[in-house]
Nucleic acid binder design. Structure first.
Length: 596
RNA sequence: GCUUCCGUAGCUCAACUGGAUAGAGUGUAGGCCUCCGGAGCCUAAGGUUGUGGGUUCGACUCCCGCCGGGAGCACCA
């Protein structure tokens, strides 16, 4: 990657200040920003921080520094001053040279992974096996996958992990309902995906339990008592005990129903295009944390209550007391998470970061988890990070899975693809496409729209999904970017290939310069996205690039340009834009079609 | 009640981490296919950034107080 012009200018500004005002400034205080479109210029230096040193007005200071830069840097063509802002015009030659240097280098924005690169484990997805995936899971999956890809191109080895919540009382609920009312129904016999079938029995259980509870309440029991004494509740608890004791029949049922669910999940994962390097199952790991109870007690980090329960008192840290072992000796979620974290650093001692992709409703949980690990003396505790994301809300409010107010993942994916198919046909773009190619295209567009819609939003913020309005293919959307890519491919097919490093052009126009400047920004954007764990940075960037290209395409002739050098340059520029769009979209897990 | 996150155009989202007159899309009203793909391009209207103070050359951004909303609050996961 060529050196950034900002670096060279920074040291020049330091020189300027030394020579003009006989003083030194830190490079940190020299901030560059893009020049506003309404003024002439490429880069702007804010001179307010230097006024104390120069003891002159903002205008004079800016002019003096500007003159120095112009005199000492061939890249600074000229400059102008507006109030305290020094606007620098960087020569077209510089931008053109930059372009020829990166034109042939597809990885110019990426940090390569080597043997000595740090290893990061990123956990995401982590579903429960008692119901199918919904829109909330989709955000988790897309976010996790994308951040993993972004970390890779920032020079990290990434292990994508999925910890499946495959045991516990909620799983037993589906099992019990199926046993009672299922009549041996299977995904095959019912013609339903396995995860949906199991989910159906989960709902069934809940319904029947509720009617039992309301019966008991009408007999005069309180809500709390009724919940505890409902026969179905007692039965399901008994089932969980049997499962933990290894009862052959219960375990057999559990295995069968879970295998249905996994098959269903695999289909959904495949449609979403997400994958994992490492699968963990809670049935293997849920006992891990128990060992740490003694460790914590002997280190006086944990306390034992009179009833035998174990807890940690975090009130000195501004948090609460947190139970870690129930009075009956069983462990809670927190304990399990402690155990699995320790286990992972044992399994992968080279881990430099452990990232959990989990919704922000668990912010407190992870705050406590990391603090407990730190108090136990694990120095890697500070390398743990909660990639917290906001909830997806519907126009009518939060999704409630128990009330059936959810957007089912499989339904939504299908709807996106159907809409892509309809739109493509309406626009008459299916000509000359084989059927299976067409279907691949609808998938790319439908999923592209969905993924882009979700990933363009800052993960930290909650987002609204309106099923009627959110499926849009125009404007600031995935298909807009895909369309721009396909359009460029069409130009390149007609224009032939050119060697970007052997170009010569006398001058570049404003639109060309704008495009090169955006291409120039890509490395920094990739870095920002990685530092912030935010795919939205990439999404907004590829949109900006696409928009600029479409203007260029509209205003500037490419194929019919008579000057061969200019024509070649514009073809090479188009090819580079397409390549950056493709690599950016791939970081979001979105495919770009050659035609659409 | 305590802790915590959030309020930006009618709607959905940005704003380079404290910098210029807060930007896009969508929707609304208009315009652009004799030119490489109209899923595109251009123009217009649309804002006291919830609100009141403070910090400073400068605040959507930092601090404090209100108003409104979400989430979490030891033996659920």
């Amino acid at each position: 990657m060529p050196m950034k012009i900002e670096q060279a200018l920074t040291s020049l500004v330091i020189q300027a200040i030394r020579s003009l005002y006989n003083s030194t400034v830190e490079s940190k205080s020299i901030v560059f920003q893009k020049t506003n479109a309404e003024y002439e210029g490429d880069l702007t230096i804010v001179v307010f921080p230097f006024l104390k040193i120069s003891k002159k007005s903002p205008e004079v200071t800016a002019k003096e520094i500007g003159a120095y830069l112009q005199a000492n840097s061939p890249e600074v063509e000229h400059f102008s001053v507006v109030k305290g802002f020094l606007n620098l015009v960087i020569s077209g030659q510089y931008w053109f040279d930059y372009f020829t240097k990166v034109a042939e280098n597809t990885g110019y924005a990426f940090v390569p992974v080597t043997d000595s690169s740090p290893t990061v484990m990123l956990e995401y997805s982590s579903p429960n096996t008692n119901k199918p995936l919904h829109l909330g899971h989709i955000r988790n999956n897309l976010l996790g996958y994308s951040v993993a890809e972004i970390l890779k191109v920032n020079g990290n080895k990434v292990i994508k992990a999925n910890l499946v919540n495959d045991r516990g009382i909620h799983i037993c609920k589906s099992m019990l309902a199926w046993k009672k009312w299922g009549n041996g129904e299977t995904p095959e016999s019912a013609g339903i995906k396995g995860d949906h079938l199991v989910g159906k029995y989960y709902v069934e259980f809940d319904k029947n339990l509720k009617s039992q509870i309301s019966n008991l309440k009408s007999q005069g029991l309180s809500e709390e008592e009724a919940e505890k004494k409902a026969p179905f509740m007692l039965e399901v608890q008994e089932m969980l005990r049997k499962w933990e004791a290894g009862d052959a029949e219960v375990v057999g049922l559990w295995k069968m129903m879970n295998s249905w669910v996994y098959k269903g999940f695999d289909e959904t994962y495949k449609m979403l295009g997400v994958d994992f390097d490492k699968m963990y199952y809670e049935s293997d790991t849920y006992l891990l944390g128990k060992k740490m109870i003694d460790e914590g007690l002997s280190k006086n980090v944990f306390n034992r209550g009179a009833d035998g329960s174990v807890f940690i008192d975090l009130t000195p840290d501004g948090l609460d007391k947190k139970i870690l072992l129930r009075s009956d000796g069983t462990s809670v979620y927190m304990t399990q998470d402690m155990g699995t974290a320790v286990e992972r650093f044992k399994e992968f001692p080279e881990l430099s970061k452990l990232i959990y992709t989990v919704g922000n409703e668990q912010d407190y949980h992870f705050k406590v988890l990391f603090l407990v690990l730190k108090k136990l003396g694990y120095k890697w505790a500070e390398s743990c990070y909660h990639l917290s994301y906001g909830m997806v809300e519907l126009p009518e409010g939060k999704m409630k899975s128990r009330e059936g107010k959810v957007v089912d993942a499989d339904d939504l994916i299908k709807e996106m693809i159907d809409t892509a198919r309809e739109t493509t046909m309406e626009l008459g773009k299916t000509e000359g496409l084989e059927l299976h190619e067409a279907e691949k295209l609808y998938h790319a567009i439908g999923l592209g729209a969905l993924k882009y819609f979700i990933l363009k939003v800052d993960p930290k913020k909650k987002m609204l999904f309106n099923p009627k309005e959110s499926i849009d293919f125009n404007g600031h959307t995935g298909p807009f970017v895909q369309y721009t890519y396909a359009r460029i491919q069409s130009v390149l097919r007609k224009g032939g290939s050119v060697v970007g490093s052997r170009l010569s052009v006398v001058g570049i126009n404003r639109k060309e310069k704008n495009l090169i400047k955006i291409i120039y920004d890509f490395p920094g954007v990739v870095q920002d996205a990685g530092r912030e764990y935010n795919p939205g940075v990439i999404a907004n960037y590829v949109y900006e690039l696409s928009k600029e290209y479409n203007q260029f395409y509209h205003d500037i002739t490419i194929l019919k340009e008579e000057n061969a050098d200019l024509r070649n340059f514009r073809l090479a520029l188009s090819a580079k834009v397409a390549e950056v769009i493709r690599s950016g979209m791939n970081l979001l897990g979105i495919e770009v079609p050659e035609k659409m």
